[in-house]
Amino acid sequence: MDKVQKSLPINDKAAQRLKQKGFIEGRKPNYFISSQIARITDKKAQYTRNKGLDTELLKSFILRHIDIHGYATRKEIDELLMDKMPDYLDEKQRKKRIENILQDMRNDTIKNIGSRKVPKWVKKKD
Rank of each mutant, 00 (worst) to 15 (best):
R49N: 10
I24P: 02
K59M: 13
I37H: 00
K84F: 12
N100A: 11
K124Q: 08
F61P: 02
H65Q: 05
E91Q: 12
K124I: 15
L80W: 01
I68P: 00
V4D: 02
E25G: 00
K28T: 10
D42W: 02
I110V: 12
K6A: 12
I66S: 02
M85F: 04
H69G: 02
G26T: 04
E99S: 10
M1G: 03
Q36Y: 14
M105T: 03
L102M: 09
L57W: 06
T41P: 02
A45T: 09
D42E: 14
R106Y: 13
G22Y: 06
I68D: 09
Q93A: 13
A38Y: 06
L80H: 02
S7E: 11
M1R: 02
E56P: 00
D54G: 03
I10E: 06
A15Q: 03
K123C: 05
K3E: 14
S60Y: 07
T48G: 00
E91K: 13
K44I: 15
G70M: 07
T109G: 04
L63G: 03
K43H: 09
K96R: 15
F61T: 03
N100Q: 15
A72T: 06
K21F: 12
R116Q: 11
T55S: 13
L81W: 01
G52Q: 07
N100M: 10
N30S: 11
D83L: 12
R106L: 15
I24H: 05
Q16R: 14
I40G: 00
G26V: 08
M82R: 07
Q46H: 07
L80A: 06
P86C: 06
D108N: 13
K19I: 12
N100L: 14
D90I: 08
K13F: 14
K120A: 03
I113Y: 06
K96G: 03
D54T: 02
M105Q: 08
P9E: 09
D12R: 12
T41M: 09
K96Y: 10
V4P: 00
E99R: 11
N107H: 13
Q93P: 00
D54A: 11
I40V: 14
R17Q: 11
Y31P: 03
Y31I: 03
Y47S: 02
G52W: 01
R74F: 12
Y31W: 09
K96H: 10
I62Y: 00
I62L: 03
Y47D: 00
T41W: 06
D78W: 11
K43M: 14
K44T: 15
Q5L: 15
M85H: 06
E79M: 10
P9Q: 07
F61E: 11
D90V: 11
E76G: 07
T55P: 03
S60G: 05
S35F: 09
G52T: 07
